[in-house]
């Protein structure tokens, strides 16, 4: 079976194409997704091949995009909505939280809401304000939504198709810094693991490093650097944020006794707080140290010239690892 090396952007593009080929009810909607192929080119070429009725360039109004997608889902379509940047999702926040998340519950299951809302998230691209944010906790806090984050090209390909096939609404977070960065080998013939599962991406014995989206790469680098000092870190890509898949996390922490979670979002009430709480509830007697969090500071996202000081980087992760190991 042939394989090919792809970027995350290509993986997502291929995933969308495959989903549209497999199911004529799948539609794409968003700003600039048609002829331009999206500002990140994730939908490149799709309007040309599937037509303007299925790849819909929308007016510039995020609530309008999500709200009309709700109506199309009610009519039996499976809309895949692109929000251009994380910080632009807020005009649609009401529709997402009050409508998308609640319609299935409100209607006692009579109305399904199979919608995917793709959001490029996270920083590190030198952008102006509102283009580098990590709003995942706000959606993971909302019952009725499922929230996932891909971290690499192969997951981008599979997870997006799985999210589109899901009958529940899925917030699909894409680490925009990775779109055109590293390539990975895609083998389309394999059977992917289920969508709502976390994954051990590197085994280790001394400490469990938890990450998702853009910070998986940071965590892997930290594990490599720690290995040179004789420290064995296990790295888990959470992949799914709501629901959380705690099984592999708890198994790991029971062995290592230590955990550090890394995300770009603000630490206060972020995903790390929930994960730390669940580890403490289930692994209290296995813990050798408090679960530590490394994330964005509790400030608005800073001007880009200092964003690398704000974002959790290799050194801040290693600092937390050392503090845990020395506890």
């Amino acid at each position: 079976m042939s394989t090919q090396k792809i970027t995350l952007a290509k993986g997502l593009n291929m995933g969308l194409r495959k989903a549209m080929e497999d199911d004529p009810k799948v539609l794409i909607m968003g700003e600039d997704v048609g002829r331009l192929g999206g500002v990140f080119r994730i939908t490149d070429g799709l309007q040309k091949d599937f037509g303007e009725d299925r790849v819909i360039d929308s007016p510039l109004a995020e609530s309008g995009i999500v709200g009309t997608a709700v109506g199309m889902a009610m009519r039996g379509y499976r809309p895949v909505v692109e929000i251009q940047f994380d910080g632009f999702v807020y005009p649609a926040y009401d529709q997402i939280v009050c409508q998308v998340a609640k319609i299935h519950f409100r209607s006692k299951g009579n109305t399904k809401m199979p919608m995917v809302i793709r959001i490029p998230f996270g920083g590190g691209i030198g952008a102006v304000e509102h283009h580098s944010e990590s709003p995942e906790a706000q959606f993971a806090h909302t019952p009725g939504l499922k929230v996932v984050a891909c971290s690499n090209p192969v997951d981008g390909y599979w997870m997006l198709q799985q999210a589109i096939a899901c009958d529940d609404p899925v917030i699909f977070l894409e680490p925009k810094r990775q779109y055109h960065a590293d390539k990975a080998e895609l083998d389309e013939s394999i059977t992917p693991e289920p969508l709502f599962t976390s994954r051990v991406v590197k085994t280790g014995t001394d400490l469990t490093l938890l990450a998702y989206g853009p910070t998986v790469k940071t965590a892997m680098k930290a594990a490599e650097a720690a290995a040179t000092e004789g420290k064995s870190l296990e790295v888990i890509d959470l992949r799914t944020l709501s629901p959380l898949d705690m099984g592999p996390v708890l198994d790991s922490v029971r062995r290592t006794g230590r955990a550090v979670i890394v995300h770009e979002a603000h630490v206060n009430l972020g995903m790390g707080a929930e994960v730390a709480s669940r580890i403490t509830e289930k692994c209290f007697y296995n813990l050798e140290a408090p679960v530590l969090r490394v994330g964005g500071f509790d400030t608005p996202y800073p001007p880009s010239r200092i964003e690398e000081d704000y974002l959790p980087d290799l050194d801040r992760v290693l600092d937390a690892v050392d503090r845990s190991l020395e506890f």
């Binding site: 539609l27 709200g67 009309t68 997608a69 709700v70 109506g71 199309m72 009610m74 009050c98």
Partner: peptide, 15 residues
């Protein structure tokens, strides 16, 4: 909120 749903539903009818 339902005015957007109505519009989207109508777009579905077109399709």
């Amino acid at each position: 909120a339902q005015v957007l749903h109505a519009t989207g539903y109508a777009m579905g009818m077109q399709r």
